[in-house]
Deep mutational scan, measured.
Amino acid sequence: KELVLVLYDYQEKSPRELTVKKGDILTLLNSTNKDWWKIEVNGRQGFVPAAYLKKL
């Protein structure tokens, strides 16, 4: 499993997105899109802007 660090808080703006908090370490599911990465948070899957995340 690949992990990502959340660099900035992000509030979901659609049902396909997820809310994340700065400092969270989460599972990366897909990073093929350069702008939006798919991650998992508490069993939910969704997208967060790639600029808000850093691969560990």
Score class of each variant (00 low, 15 high):
32 T>G: 09
19 T>P: 03
35 D>G: 10
24 D>A: 12
14 S>K: 08
37 W>R: 01
7 L>D: 01
16 R>L: 14
21 K>N: 08
22 K>P: 03
27 T>G: 06
56 L>W: 10
38 K>E: 15
53 L>W: 01
19 T>L: 04
45 Q>S: 14
20 V>E: 00
51 A>K: 12
4 V>C: 09
22 K>Q: 11
7 L>Y: 02
12 E>K: 15
22 K>V: 06
12 E>A: 13
6 V>H: 00
30 N>T: 08
39 I>P: 00
47 F>K: 03
44 R>M: 11
7 L>W: 03
31 S>A: 14
45 Q>R: 12
23 G>S: 03
18 L>Q: 05
33 N>K: 07
11 Q>V: 13
24 D>L: 09
12 E>S: 15
28 L>W: 02
14 S>T: 12
24 D>P: 00
36 W>E: 05
39 I>W: 00
20 V>N: 00
29 L>D: 02
37 W>N: 01
11 Q>H: 14
48 V>Y: 02
26 L>Q: 05
18 L>R: 04
30 N>A: 11
2 E>Y: 12
40 E>Y: 06
11 Q>E: 13
54 K>H: 11
49 P>L: 04
50 A>V: 07
15 P>T: 10
24 D>F: 07
35 D>P: 02
16 R>W: 15
31 S>W: 10
28 L>T: 01
49 P>H: 03
18 L>E: 02
21 K>V: 10
37 W>A: 02
11 Q>A: 11
24 D>K: 04
17 E>V: 04
10 Y>M: 01
10 Y>R: 03
52 Y>E: 01
55 K>T: 07
22 K>A: 13
4 V>F: 03
25 I>M: 06
32 T>M: 12
15 P>N: 15
55 K>W: 05
33 N>W: 07
26 L>N: 05
55 K>Y: 10
4 V>S: 01
52 Y>G: 07
51 A>M: 12
14 S>R: 11
44 R>N: 13
25 I>Y: 05
30 N>E: 14
25 I>F: 05
30 N>Y: 08
32 T>F: 10
34 K>M: 11
21 K>S: 10
28 L>H: 01
10 Y>K: 01
25 I>L: 08
47 F>W: 15
14 S>Q: 10
17 E>L: 05
41 V>C: 11
12 E>D: 07
2 E>L: 13
27 T>W: 14
5 L>H: 04
32 T>L: 10
16 R>C: 13
32 T>E: 14
55 K>A: 07
45 Q>W: 12
34 K>P: 14
43 G>C: 08
37 W>M: 02
4 V>M: 02
38 K>Y: 15
26 L>Y: 14
1 K>E: 13
14 S>M: 07
3 L>A: 07
26 L>H: 15
33 N>E: 09
24 D>W: 15
52 Y>P: 01
55 K>R: 15
11 Q>R: 11
39 I>V: 14
29 L>M: 08
36 W>H: 05
9 D>S: 10
44 R>V: 10
19 T>N: 07
7 L>S: 02
24 D>M: 14
10 Y>W: 09
40 E>H: 05
1 K>T: 14
3 L>Y: 13
5 L>I: 15
47 F>N: 04
33 N>H: 13
5 L>S: 04
16 R>P: 06
26 L>W: 14
45 Q>D: 09
21 K>G: 05
51 A>D: 09
13 K>C: 11
46 G>Q: 02
8 Y>M: 11
38 K>R: 13
32 T>I: 09
46 G>L: 06
12 E>Y: 07
9 D>N: 11
1 K>I: 14
51 A>W: 10
33 N>Q: 10
35 D>V: 12
15 P>G: 12
27 T>R: 13
48 V>H: 01
41 V>N: 13
28 L>K: 01
54 K>C: 14
16 R>D: 12
27 T>P: 13
45 Q>H: 11
29 L>Q: 04
1 K>F: 15
28 L>Q: 01
30 N>W: 09
49 P>K: 04
13 K>F: 06
53 L>R: 00
12 E>R: 14
10 Y>V: 01
20 V>M: 05
15 P>H: 13
53 L>H: 00
11 Q>M: 13
37 W>E: 00
42 N>R: 09
48 V>T: 02
34 K>F: 09
34 K>N: 15
34 K>R: 10
42 N>F: 09
56 L>H: 05
9 D>R: 03
3 L>T: 09
45 Q>P: 08
27 T>Y: 11
2 E>D: 12
42 N>M: 10
38 K>M: 14
15 P>L: 08
31 S>R: 08
47 F>Y: 15
22 K>G: 06
2 E>A: 12
15 P>F: 10
25 I>P: 00
50 A>E: 03
18 L>G: 03
23 G>D: 06
39 I>K: 00
36 W>R: 04
53 L>C: 06
56 L>G: 02
5 L>Y: 11
17 E>P: 09
